[in-house]
Amino acid sequence: MTPEIALQLFGDAFYLTVVMVAVIVGPSLGVGLIVSTFQAATQINEQTLSFLPRLLVTIGTIMVTGPWLIQELTDLFNHLMIIIPEVIG
């Protein structure tokens, strides 16, 4: 395996990891910001008020984007299986 192939494989896997995390965590961060702004404006300091909406949005995001995320992961896995002869030599 040449260093170029190894770097390309690691780069593809790292990029997919970053995209998957961003898709799942991004909406949760947005909802957390909105809830925190609401809590600061009303001076309500309830922990469940900040936790529950983020949990629901994260679960909803996984339900909506789950098929796409699995498809991207299986595409990367299939690509890795196809290039095994090239990697071996």
Rank of each mutant, 00 (worst) to 15 (best):
M63G: 02
F77M: 11
M20I: 12
F14N: 02
Q43C: 03
Q8E: 10
G32P: 05
A6W: 09
P85C: 01
L29C: 07
R54S: 11
M1W: 05
L69G: 02
L33N: 05
V35Q: 10
F10N: 12
G60S: 08
Q39H: 04
V35F: 01
L49C: 04
V35R: 00
L9E: 11
S36D: 00
I84D: 05
S36R: 13
G89N: 14
I62H: 01
P3S: 04
F38E: 05
A40I: 10
L29A: 07
V21T: 10
I82D: 13
T61Q: 00
I88L: 15
V19G: 06
T2A: 03
I88P: 01
I84M: 15
G89A: 09
I62M: 14
R54V: 13
Q71A: 15
L33R: 02
Q71H: 14
T58G: 13
G26E: 07
T65F: 15
V57N: 04
G32T: 04
G26A: 05
I83Y: 01
V21I: 13
A22W: 10
E4D: 08
M81C: 05
S50N: 11
Q71K: 15
T58N: 09
N78C: 00
V57I: 15
T58I: 11
E86G: 03
D12Y: 10
V21S: 08
I24H: 00
I34V: 15
E86F: 09
A22V: 05
T48Y: 11
G11P: 02
S50R: 14
G32A: 10
S36A: 14
V31R: 10
G26T: 06
V35M: 03
P67W: 06
Q39C: 03
L16H: 06
P85S: 06
L55I: 01
V35I: 15
A13F: 12
T61M: 02
L16P: 01
V23W: 00
G30H: 08
G60W: 09
L73E: 01
S36Y: 02
I82H: 11
G89T: 11
L56K: 03
S28H: 01
I70M: 08
V87P: 04
I59A: 14
P53T: 02
M20N: 07
T74R: 01
L69D: 07
S28I: 11
F38R: 03
S50H: 02
D12M: 13
G26C: 06
I24W: 00
I24D: 01
L69W: 02
I84T: 14
D75W: 08
V57M: 09
T2S: 15
I70A: 12
P27N: 08
T37C: 12
I62W: 07
I44H: 01
L55G: 09
T65N: 12
T17V: 15
L29Q: 07
S36M: 15
L9W: 03
P53L: 09
V21P: 00
L52P: 01
W68K: 11
L16D: 00
F14Y: 04
V18A: 12
F10D: 06
P27A: 02
G66H: 06
G89C: 07
M81E: 10
G89R: 14
I5G: 00
V21W: 08
E46D: 15
D75K: 10
I88S: 11
V19Y: 06
Y15A: 13
F51Y: 10
L73W: 09
T61P: 01
P27F: 02
L69E: 11
T65L: 09
N45D: 12
Q39F: 07
L56C: 10
V23M: 08
E4L: 14
